[in-house]
Each structure stands twice: as C-alpha cells, then as structure tokens.
Design a protein around this nucleic acid. Structure first.
Lengths: 345, 345
DNA sequence: CTAATTAGGTTAAACGTTTATCCTTGTAAC
DNA sequence: GTTACAAGGATAAACGTTTAACCTAATTAG
C-alpha cells in the first residue's frame, strides 16, 4: 500500500504539503499542487482511513441495528437509510440481531434483550461510530437506551420511551383516517374494522384514526363493528365471519394479511369483494396487488422513514449530537393505494 | 474517552504492560494482571479500534455490496451473511447500490455499472475491509472484478466470470430435477413448463433439470410443452393458455409469481388447481403459501448462500486471501416445499 | 528604504495502540 | 561465588495521517 510518505518523497515535498493539497487546505503553487495530485493518482495512493480516524476522530460512519433483516418492512427502511447516507457520504455498519431466529423464548426476557443491545451499542462505540440508528418492526416501545455511552441515537419505525431519542414512525392516525374517509366517501357508513393485536401501538393509532374519521363524518359509533384480530391471516378469516353477519357494507383490516383472510371468507360465502362487500387494508404490501380484485390499502412510508431517520441523525451530528427538533416523535405520512376492492354505494 | 495511557498511569505501570495483559500476551504477576483488568473495567476503558487497525492492519470487517436491498432474496442472503459473521466476530459494512432505483437506463451501460462498483470497492479497500461479498439477484454473469485492488472477493447468489472469484449459487439443476421428479412420481408425464427469461442462467439451469428428470424417467421430449415466460405473473397467465390446450396434466413454472398467473388462468377456464390440473412453482416465496391451494414449490437456500459465502470468505482470509476450494462455483441445494397443488393421477 | 505582509512551503508533535528489544531483580545450578 | 536463566516489566519505535507553529524569500505599502 502506497502512503502519503511515498507520494511526498516522489514529489520532493513534505508530507504536510501533500496532505494539505489533497485536502484542499493551506496554500501552494498550482504547479506543485497539480504535480502532487497527478503523482498521487498515478501511484494509486488511497488515504488510510484508520490513520485519519485516529487523528481526526471522525469516522463518517453510522451504526445500524436491525432486529431482523428478513421480515417485511425492515429492508425498505434500511434502503432509505442507505439512500440518504450515500448522498451525504456516510458509511454504514450493519448489525442484524436476528432476534426471532437465534434464540428461544427466554431471550425475550427484558434483561437478555437489553443486554444484547447494550453489547452491540458498546461495540459500535468502540468502533467510533458517530451515531446509531435502531430499526425495529417491533410494536412495543423500547425503553432500552438509558445507559452510558453518549452516542447519538435515532429510532426508526418504532418508538423510544426516552424523549431525548427521536423516533421516526408511521403516521398511523392520519393514514387510518384517510382510509376510512375514503370508504365513507364511497358511500359506506357501516364499516367494520378488524384490528391488530390490541396492545400494539400501531393498532391503537389506527383505531383512533378510524374513530376520528367516523366521528368527523357523523357516523354513529357501533362497538360491534370493532373486532380484535392479531395481524395474522387466519384472524381476518375468523373475524370477518362475525362482521358479515352484523350487516356491515365494508370491512377495514389493519393489515393486508388479514384482508387476505377476509377475502377468503367472503368468497366462501358466495359473495364478491368490491361488489357485494368492500374491503380495505393497510401496509401496501406487494402481495395485495395480487389479490382479486386488488386491495385498496395504505402504503407504509418505509423508505421515507429510513431516509428521514438518517437525515435527523446527521443533522444531530452537525449539532453536537443533540436533537433540536420540537417533537421527539416524527410522523411520516402513508400513501394511499387504490385497488378495486371498494364498491361505491 | 479513556485510553490505555490513563489505565497505565492509574495502575502505575507502562502502557506496554497494560496492552500485554489485556491481550493475554507477555508475562506478569497475577497481582498486577488482575489489578489492571479491574481498573480497566472500572474506568470504562474501551480500546480504540482505529489505533488497533492502524497498528495491526487487521479490521475484522467485511464489505457487503448488494445491488438492491428491497428486492426479494437479497435480505435473506444478507441475513445469512450476518449470521455467520456474528459467530466469527466479523463486522459488516453495507453498501446498497440501489441499481434499479436511482438511475435511468443509461446506468445499465456496462461502463457506468462497472465504474460504480469499482468506486465502491475502492472505498472498501481504503477502509481496510479484509474482503468483499457481492450480492446480486441479477441473473447475468458479472465479469466486473478484473481490476486492481487485490482484495479477496466472493459472489453470492450470482456468478462471476473470473474463476479466481468463488461464486455461491443456487443448485438450480438439481432443484428443478427434484420438482419434476416429484411431478413424475405423482403420475404425471405430460408436463408443461413455463421458463423464465431464456437468456437467464437460472432459467437455463432449471430447464436442464427438467430435461434431465424427463429423460431419466423415459418421458418423450415434447418441444410444445416448453414455453418461454419472463418471470412475470402475466406471462404465466398467457403461456398457460396454450399449455392447457396442448393436453398437459401439469404445469411447472420456474417461479412462484408466474404460477400465480397460471392459477388465474386455470380458474378462469373453470378448472381446479390440484384436481383437474397440477401446478408446481419455484422460489418458495411466502406468497405461494397463500395461493389456493398452496403451491408446491422449491425454496431457495437464500440464508445458506449468504452463510456459505461468508464462510468461504473468512476461510480465504485465513489463507492469505486465496481460494483453495476445488470448484469456483459452489452449488447450494434448495429445499422442497410441498403444497396441495399437485394431484396424483 | 524599511517594515509588513504574503506565498509557499517545512517541522514536529500528536492521535492510541502493538511489539521487538532491553533492563532489573531474584533464584537455581554448578 | 560466579554464571545462567527466568520472571516481571519498561522503553521506544512504528503505524499513516493532520495540523499548529514556524521558516524563508519575495512582494507590497508607505
């Protein structure tokens, strides 16, 4: 490997001069400057980043921790992160916890879980990462960052309990509001809803959006129209049975998977989706475009969440690691995706 | 940040001693040893990895380049890579080229494409990555690594033209062979096949597997049974129209997406999949488990490919960066996934 | 004509480790 | 009582940069 010394010797100048020229600092004649640049290129000089790091204490690297690389949504968030970091010329180190794969249930005990994360954060600190982005599709709040190493952090796609740590999340309330508003605008007022797991933040927020939309449109609140699902396809199938009997004209599922189960049930009863009964989903998964008819749903802003999270991270870095935004929680809007699963009545 | 000097001063010994103890080298009394270890922990000493890197020239980091994080298969391969690297205590730096997103078509011109990759490899070299794993879901061969920096490389999920670079790929021939053998074992002999794009390595290999299975079972080769698809759902729909007329009892699609189109067509003609006509797929996508009936398919060994690629990478690293395996191409077997889409006749 | 400034550099310290070499003691062997 | 050796450490150079401080000659201001 050719070093700055080699270049300096070859050009007959000091290393300081080479360093200055190559970094666009200091002063020097155009003559030497171009000679140095030419030689450096010629000799294939690449600065040793370990040395630079050691000296400047800047790595221009971010640590990214994901809970599971292979589940829906995570890769898209990472895609957004890489997109912005590339633009800003930041490097990314990736840690994939594989939380749902490596370990048995004991792993979920708070202590183990937190210890693992703490260890990884420590490693990142040791490697001089300038900041850490934590990506989780986990619904529950993660209050796990109340410990030592003062390295700036941002949560993407899930919440932090610690208010000093900004969280970039889906704007579920408004997204859900829009879906239901759309159903209403198509003439529906008896709108059943199959929720996700009731203790999930997403389900809570989406339910609020539903209620707000219903309220704003002066629809009477009917408790029987609200049934708890568990995000799984089977629960969509199961709950829609009850809903169909209750006389609703539309079923809003809090994710596309459950909507799949709802489709199954509807066809089983000899009805047709988008004609006899309407269905709306949430998530905007590719899967949903293959449903027959294609599902009307809300696309999650996964890429944007990653992008925004890294934008905030780098902004913090330029500000002494402190977050200066007014809200600790940043809501990113979903995008409406119209299919053919909703009838006008 | 507390350095080794601080620890040394605090313990009243030299930095060399601290370094030796903490790295388990040299000799020293148990007394000082334990004192140093205790103090170090107490003071929260973490070694500065930039300094270590500078001195030892070892980073224990691998660069991973993926062409697009968000497309099917890539995240699972990365998952496999992280799994093995975690075990071996190697760190990962990620670059997501976003090849199909950022740029218009001109980008695909060989020169641009190669230049981009070369640039990224250079960056990795500068950052002292010990090796690079290149992950591509691209079908075509990538002859792009014939350039300077002698940093060890491994290809995952796609082929390299350069024989010095090992490629870890799906064993398509045998996977395809097994699928078709299974169809035959269920009593089918008139087996239509919808291929992927004919110029793709995957399609070629899977076709060979098909032919081999047919030949081994003494089935007559019928050219009309082989129709070219393009991996897209629509082409499955289209091609199955012809196939149904030609009297086949089973249709083998070279991916699950096309199989979806085939299902559509079959139901449109008033037939039932898994009864009147059988369908087999390839890829083992989650999607396929939601088909009705669930599709019988071959699951790609994506995790294993990543795992194996990094295993080979690290093996190379321990061997002066040279690959010593006998084959430049490592085939990883698929796993058969039985659905209910194949009738016994 | 002198003093101040500037252009175009050079010197050397510093970043935080590792590691080969060197230096004391104390003990054992003869 | 000398010689050897080992145990337990210390010294200092080196890794490849950056950067503050310094130097010299030439130009400019007054």
């Amino acid at each position: 490997m050719v070093t700055i010394k080699d270049v300096a010797r070859e050009c007959g100048v000091s290393v300081a001069t080479v360093s200055n020229i190559l970094n666009g600092k200091g002063k020097s004649s155009n003559e030497t400057a171009s000679k140095i640049r030419k030689k450096a290129k010629e000799m294939g000089y690449v600065p040793n980043s370990a040395a630079i790091q050691l000296k400047t204490k800047k790595t221009r690297s971010l640590g990214v921790i994901v809970e599971d690389m292979t589940i829906f949504s995570i890769p898209d968030v990472v895609d957004g992160i890489t997109n912005y970091c590339d633009k800003m010329n930041y490097q990314i180190e990736l840690i994939n916890l594989r939380l749902f794969k490596n370990h048995n249930d004991t792993y979920y005990y708070k202590d183990f879980y937190y210890k693992r994360i703490r260890d990884e954060v420590m490693k990142f600190a040791q490697r001089q990462m300038e900041g850490i982005i934590y990506v989780s599709a986990h619904e529950r709040v993660l209050p796990c960052f109340q410990f030592d190493p003062q390295i700036p952090m941002v949560m993407a796609y899930s919440y932090s309990e610690d208010e000093r740590i900004p969280s970039v999340v889906v704007d579920d309330v408004n997204g859900s509001y829009e879906v239901v508003k759309h159903l209403i605008s198509m003439g529906h007022s008896k709108i059943g809803v199959i929720t996700g797991k009731p203790d999930s933040m997403h389900a809570q927020a989406r339910l609020l959006g539903y209620q707000k939309a219903m309220y704003d449109s002066h629809n009477i609140f009917v408790p029987e129209y609200i049934l708890n699902g568990d995000w799984g396809r089977a629960s969509g199938y199961e709950m829609s049975g009850k809903l169909l009997k209750s006389g609703v004209t539309a079923i809003y599922c809090m994710n596309d998977l459950m909507a799949g189960g709802v489709y199954d049930r509807i066809y089983e009863e000899g009805l047709t989706v988008g004609k006899d009964i309407s269905v709306a989903g949430y998530d905007g998964r590719e899967l949903a475009t293959y449903y027959k008819p294609p599902l009307t749903t809300m696309t999650l802003p996964l890429h944007d969440i990653g992008y925004e999270a890294s934008r905030i991270m780098i902004e913090m870095l330029e500000n002494d690691g402190k977050y200066t935004g007014k809200d600790a929680v940043i809501q990113v809007p979903c995008q409406f995706m119209e299919g053919k699963s909703i009838a006008r009545i």
